[in-house]
Design a protein around this nucleic acid. Structure first.
Length: 552
RNA sequence: UGGGGCGUCGCCAAGUGGCAAGGCAGCGGGUUUUGAUCCCGCCAUUCGGAGGUUCGAAUCCUCCCGCCCCAGCCA
């Protein structure tokens, strides 16, 4: 394990296991159920599981926990694999499926029946709930609990043959109906579902539950550390019970950590699905979604997401991480990796009447990294600047273009505002300025430096683009706790503008390429919709801004 | 009110008997052809609370308080 990684209880635990003589390589697994798209919380689990394997020279499996066919689909299986790879990880060997172990699981169920440790129960779901008791009252034994081994065997075989209807019977473990741990009150091992499975088709009319499947899957694969979230802690005694009572080839160990929660987001798959189904967003990969696919389409780089997951740490205490931390990781990565370009969002015509002739400027693509090279930009008599960058008059805090004051056009000349035209409503429609310098990049000869620098594009040589500006989807920090998710939505989470003008070269941006539009923020060429004929950029995130809040 | 967890700065989080790391946020200053970046500085005499053990406690003990999870034939 590299020394620079901060310690956490998982790494400490594994180091301890290794020191205590764990003789096999560390093997972890990322075990999603294919019933939705992966989200930022899964990203955390992925970096934990794949990261641990990597740090300890072990391996990590990708295993679909597909024990509930009615909620699962091939679409999710495909998207999950794509997302894991995009995040930068490759699983060891083939993709695994819990469903590939159905026959083994079935045989282990027979074993438990044989041992008198499992029985077929005919209680209806409602009756079973009654018999289960409550948190403070013990449950009662099912009237079917003492069936003979042969009767249980015969009944379970009939279940497997599809002779009963859905919900008619279940197979339960015989543990302790009075246990203070609800999971030990004769948990269900198999339920009847005449449902076609995306992997096994109609081969099985019965499906194992999570509890009966997960630990055994881990055992089959030789998983050394089965890492899951805190809510499964109460299941660990049951996990261990199966491992102890079944002839499994290996004893995996379950360790729980606190799931990742980030402010202003929701990670319930059920609720995310509702946003998609209700068309509140444009799909699972809408750039406002906390899904991996959404973050990707928003322009969040995979290395930034991985770095964020490492930075927040891994512990056992519930909490909520400030979204600003993820955003910081994104800005940090993009600042170093995104080439600079100019985009004028709210164009205002600027005329340089005394510019002798159009000139071609060589402008750096990155202020701190020469490897990005430079690009040629045309500076003509007529330009566009942002409306926000001009005022007829302003106090000294306004470092942009003002009548009678100087400002530099990024990478070009220093100019001075002279006058402006307005329409009948008083709206400024054109600004006139004179050139103070004649050589690009030079300072004024009189030594009076410009107040600031503004960005611009050539009126003639720029091209229109659609800019999709995103803001957080929810306006409350903890939408998961809102009584009504819909009322917590931010009505301005998406603002589309077709007014923007961009440098012509931006037309040729590759899908998913991210640029910094100087003085604005980071923008990504939309993965699907961007084209040279119709450039479309999604705002990834704005630049940090210490001005607008205090003065603007 | 049964059981299982968790409480260290505004938000995350190291630390496990010997001087309370770090990141994010925030605040001040410097550099700057991006109000960005970068750089410098500030930001917990105290670890949920109260007792106790100890030369010494965030770390060990006792009691108390707060928050989270569990009563799916979901995972």
């Amino acid at each position: 394990m590299s020394a620079e990684l901060r310690s956490n209880f998982l790494r400490t635990q594994i180091q301890g296991d290794l020191a205590a003589g764990l003789s096999r390589p560390v093997i972890t697994r990322f075990p999603p159920e294919p019933n939705g798209y992966l989200h930022i919380g899964h990203a955390k689990s992925i970096t934990v599981n794949f990261g641990l394997a990597e740090q300890f020279g072990g391996r990590c499996h990708l295993r679909f926990d597909d024990t509930n066919p009615e909620k699962e689909s091939q679409e999710f299986i495909d998207s999950i694999q794509e997302d894991v790879r995009w995040l930068g990880y490759e699983w060891h060997g083939e993709v695994r499926y819990a469903s590939a172990y159905f026959q083994q699981l079935f045989e282990w169920a027979l074993h438990l029946i044989d041992e008198g440790l499992a029985y077929v129960c005919d209680l209806s779901p409602e009756e079973a709930r009654e018999y289960r008791g409550t948190l403070t009252e013990a449950g009662r034994n099912s009237p079917y609990r003492d069936r003979s081994t042969s009767e249980n065997m015969a009944l379970f075989l009939k279940m497997r043959e599809g002779e009963f209807s859905d919900g008619e019977r279940v197979l339960r473990a015989k543990i302790d109906m009075a246990s203070s741990n609800m999971n030990l009150r004769d948990p269900i091992l198999y339920r009847i579902r005449h449902a076609s499975h995306h992997q096994t088709g109609d081969e099985w009319p019965i499906y194992p539950t999570y509890d009966f499947a997960h630990g055994q899957e881990d055992a089959i694969e030789g998983i050394t550390h089965s890492i899951c979230t805190l809510e499964f802690e109460d299941h660990r005694p049951l996990y261990d019970w199966f491992i102890a009572h079944l002839p499994v080839p290996h004893r995996p160990r379950q360790i729980e950590f606190a799931r990742l929660n980030t402010s202003y987001t929701i990670t319930s798959k059920r609720k995310l699905k509702r946003l998609v189904d209700d068309e509140v967003v444009a799909g699972w990969d809408d750039p406002r979604m906390p899904t991996i696919a959404g973050l990707r389409r928003r322009g969040y780089p995979a290395p930034a997401i991985r770095h964020f997951c490492e930075e927040v740490g891994t512990s056992r205490s519930d909490g909520m991480v400030d979204m600003a931390m993820l955003e910081s990781a994104v800005r940090d990565h993009l600042n170093r990796h995104a080439p600079r370009a100019m985009c004028v969002m709210r164009p205002l015509r600027l005329v340089l009447a005394d510019l002798p002739e159009s000139m071609t400027l060589a402008v750096s693509n990155h202020p701190a990294d020469p490897q990005f090279g430079e690009r040629q930009l045309r500076m003509d008599r007529e330009l566009f600047i942002d409306r926000e960058d001009f005022r007829e008059e302003a106090n000294k805090h306004f470092k942009r273009l003002v009548l009678g004051k100087r400002v530099r056009l990024r990478g070009g000349l220093v100019i001075e505002g002279e006058r402006c035209d307005k329409d009948s409503d008083g709206t400024i429609i054109c600004v006139y300025a004179k050139c103070i310098t004649s050589v690009p990049g030079a300072d004024p000869e009189d030594g009076v430096k410009p107040k600031g620098v503004i960005h611009w594009v050539s009126a003639e040589h720029s091209v229109p683009a659609t800019i999709r500006q995103y803001d957080r989807l929810f306006s409350v920090a903890d939408p998961a706790r809102a009584d009504d998710m819909t009322s917590a939505l931010n009505p301005n989470s998406l603002v589309v503008s077709d007014d923007a003008m961009i440098e012509p070269a931006l037309r040729d941006a590759a899908p998913e390429q991210v640029f910094q539009f100087e003085r604005e923020g980071y923008f990504v060429a939309d993965r699907y919709d961007h084209s040279a004929a119709h450039p479309i950029f999604n705002m990834t995130i704005g630049l940090r801004d210490s001005w607008s809040g205090s003065n603007g």
